[in-house]
């Protein structure tokens, strides 16, 4: 065995390992007629998961494929598109972005030949924050994000009903998790893509949240006669458990932070509070609670201080 052979084998192993390292292993799961989801890990962004922490999906209609969210990176977008191609050779006719958070739209680069649609507030958010978001994910996920650049959707989506081939889709324009949260209800199959208005078995995130508006949006989603609900993060459900969990957690968060501000707690003291038993087992709840105090407490604190004058 000469040295050149050894080097060649070593090189081949290293290349294979590297290729495997950047393979998201995407496996679309069929959850209804023509309807597929790709469920991400209920984790925070990391070098290990490459940012694959969110759910995306697609609907194969007789007129072509509708894609809902594109994932956290250029690589993800490309692998997602390849995974769709394995299911159907129908063209992709529409891509809907549910909101402006990076794990939901940074795969857009793989879909630039298709009309990319999002609520106006989402378009505005991606314009303003796309660059910093991509930089931040590169910092957390490393080379999984190689070559990722934000692509701003060009079609302003409005709420309403649209028939695409043999599916009738209802676009529900909401807000609360961000300034623009699009839910997509497929009336043909009864599948509701809730975006990040609903988290399940993964603590809700609040960096751009308006909790009161969010709770209103959940009320609206409860009225939807869905058979299956795809949360933005966490497993698919066929009942109200996911909406209930998100709703009760947000209500607790709101009451807790308001109460703490009103009784004069310092922000660091609020962060040190224990999580109630009811929520303690939700993955990442401690982490997200710390983040949420940072996002939401200063405004409540200021109201409480103003009341003292």
């Amino acid at each position: 065995m000469n040295l050149r052979f050894v080097l060649l084998v070593a090189f081949a192993i290293a290349t294979a390992a590297l290729a495997a390292a950047f393979d998201y292993g995407l496996q679309p799961q069929k959850i209804a007629e023509g309807t597929y989801v790709l469920i991400g890990k209920t984790e925070d962004f990391s070098l290990e998961n490459g940012g694959n922490i969110q759910n995306v999906g697609f609907i194969v209609t007789s007129a072509g494929v509708v894609v809902i969210d594109t994932g956290p990176s250029k690589r993800y977008g490309e692998q997602f598109r390849a995974a769709i191609r394995k299911v159907t050779d129908k063209p992709i006719v529409k891509v809907l972005i549910t909101h402006f958070h990076p794990d939901h739209f940074l795969g857009n680069q793989a879909f630039t030949d298709v009309s990319l649609a999002a609520l106006p507030a989402t378009i505005k958010g991606i314009q303003a924050m796309g660059g910093p978001f991509a930089d931040n994910l590169y910092r957390m996920c490393g080379d999984w994000e190689a070559g990722t650049e934000p692509v701003v959707p060009t079609v302003a989506q409005v709420g309403g009903v649209e028939t695409i081939g043999d599916h009738t889709l209802e676009y529900i324009a909401l807000a609360g998790h961000t300034d623009g949260d699009l839910a997509v209800f497929d009336r043909t199959t009864g599948v509701l893509f809730a975006g990040d208005l609903v988290f399940f078995e993964r603590a809700a995130t609040t960096p751009h949240a308006n909790v009161a508006a969010w709770l209103d949006s959940l009320k609206r989603l409860r009225e939807v006669p869905y058979k299956k609900l795809i949360p933005g993060h966490g497993p698919v459900v066929s009942d109200a458990r996911a909406i209930d969990q998100t709703g009760t957690y947000l209500e607790w968060l709101d009451v807790t932070l308001r109460g703490a501000a009103e009784k004069g707690d310092d922000m660091a003291e609020v962060m040190a509070r224990p999580i109630p038993k009811q929520f303690a087992d939700i993955p990442l709840v401690q982490h997200e609670f710390t983040r949420s105090v940072t996002h939401l407490f200063p405004a409540l604190e200021q109201q409480a201080l103003a009341a003292g004058k």
């Binding site: 310092d266 660091a268 003291e269 962060m271 040190a272 710390t290 940072t294 996002h295 200063p298």
Partner: peptide, 16 residues
């Protein structure tokens, strides 16, 4: 010294 393990907002790290 009580502070979060990570700074969600580097401009506002709360400490007691």
């Amino acid at each position: 010294v009580s502070a979060p393990k990570f700074a969600e907002d580097s401009m506002n790290v709360p400490v007691t």
